[in-house]
Design a protein around this nucleic acid. Sequence first.
DNA 1: CAGTTAGATAACCAAGTGGTTAGGTAGACA
DNA 2: TGTCTACCTAACCACTTGGTTATCTAACTG
Lengths: 110, 110
Amino acid sequence: MADDPLSITFAALADPTRRAILARLAEGAATVKELSEPFAMSGPAVSKHLRVLERAGLITRGRDAQWRPCTLDATPLREVTEWADGFRRFWDDSYRRLDTYLEHMKEKGT
Amino acid sequence: MADDPLSITFAALADPTRRAILARLAEGAATVKELSEPFAMSGPAVSKHLRVLERAGLITRGRDAQWRPCTLDATPLREVTEWADGFRRFWDDSYRRLDTYLEHMKEKGT
DNA sequence: CAGTTAGATAACCAAGTGGTTAGGTAGACA
DNA sequence: TGTCTACCTAACCACTTGGTTATCTAACTG
């Protein structure tokens, strides 16, 4: 996998388990055990997913006795939306209309 | 890799070469040759990237004699922004303020 | 016809992914 | 002390990914 930040973020999001974990963390911090519960997979498997999310900067892990609470850090998602927004004119009708309007103005200006 | 649409889209975007191809196609359709030029990699490698993008529904491929022009189809990107928008309150200050305001109102209501 | 160009396919390789089981560590508690 | 809980690491597996070279088809061009 490519190692630039945006690629790492996209790769981390390319898994429904990891997206579900982020959705859960949007409601507040949780322990690894709590995050594992909804999934029919072993602890180490969840642990690996958490490491991927941590490497992408999407979560941070603290320490509280034998628990390792995970917290959401959504700032990489801002980069994701900013990147995708560069293509908004290809699907958003209002942007598309603005686009043709600007094109029209440019033609008149020449 | 997971085979749900959103995962396929995210996985397709998790590569700088493929994102660069999409950026190029935002300026208009292009042949495989034209798309290959900026990259120091073989034709088959680009061909594979295009297949990934096609599978994700991000491009469509036509036919014109011996050329196979690629066209951008950004609609999967709308799903991406819509998903990420669910987390906007974690990074957007104005949303964060609205959030605390609503929380405040809810408390008063109880 | 032969030759060239655009592009896809096949076979291969090294590295990564997503899962497993087994075993280890750190803290709470009797 | 011993035991339980929470979590991690290590080793392994099947499969995928991103690249290569070699080979093939399809269409234009002389």
